[in-house]
């Protein structure tokens, strides 16, 4: 199962750091996300892009997780050589992450 099947997301940037929210369409999937979508998994998904560590924040009231990825934007939007200096595209790219099927959980 792809993360995109159960969640949506949005990216924001501040300096060289990027945050990606992951929001369960169905709040009932929040606990599943909390168990399977770890900071380590997100960091591995973006290996080569995220240079620093990844921190995860939990928002049970929204059924959402917020990932803060350090040093992910090639020096930050105002100086990066990257085509997508804001890292705006990263939110959709995260949704390609593979998760175990819920039945096997």
């Amino acid at each position: 199962m792809q993360l995109r099947d159960i969640a949506h997301s949005r990216t924001g940037d501040k300096g060289d750091h990027s945050n990606i929210s992951v929001i369960a369409y169905d709040p009932a999937d929040y606990d599943f996300l909390r168990t399977h979508l770890t900071a380590e998994k997100v960091r591995a998904h973006f290996a080569g892009i995220v240079k620093g560590h990844v921190e995860r924040f939990e928002l049970p009231g929204l059924g959402a997780l917020n990932f803060l990825m350090f040093n992910a934007l090639g020096g930050g939007v105002t100086r990066s050589l990257a085509l997508d200096a804001h890292g705006k595209c990263l939110a959709s790219a995260l949704l390609a992450l593979e998760l175990p099927d819920r039945q096997t959980d």
């Binding site: 949005r10 924001g12 750091h17 945050n19 929210s21 929001i23 959402a64 917020n66």
Partner: peptide, 14 residues
């Protein structure tokens, strides 16, 4: 859903 995305937009520690 549109509100949830914007609540967390450019937020670090909520």
């Amino acid at each position: 859903a549109t509100l949830k995305e914007q609540i967390l937009y450019e937020v670090h520690d909520p």
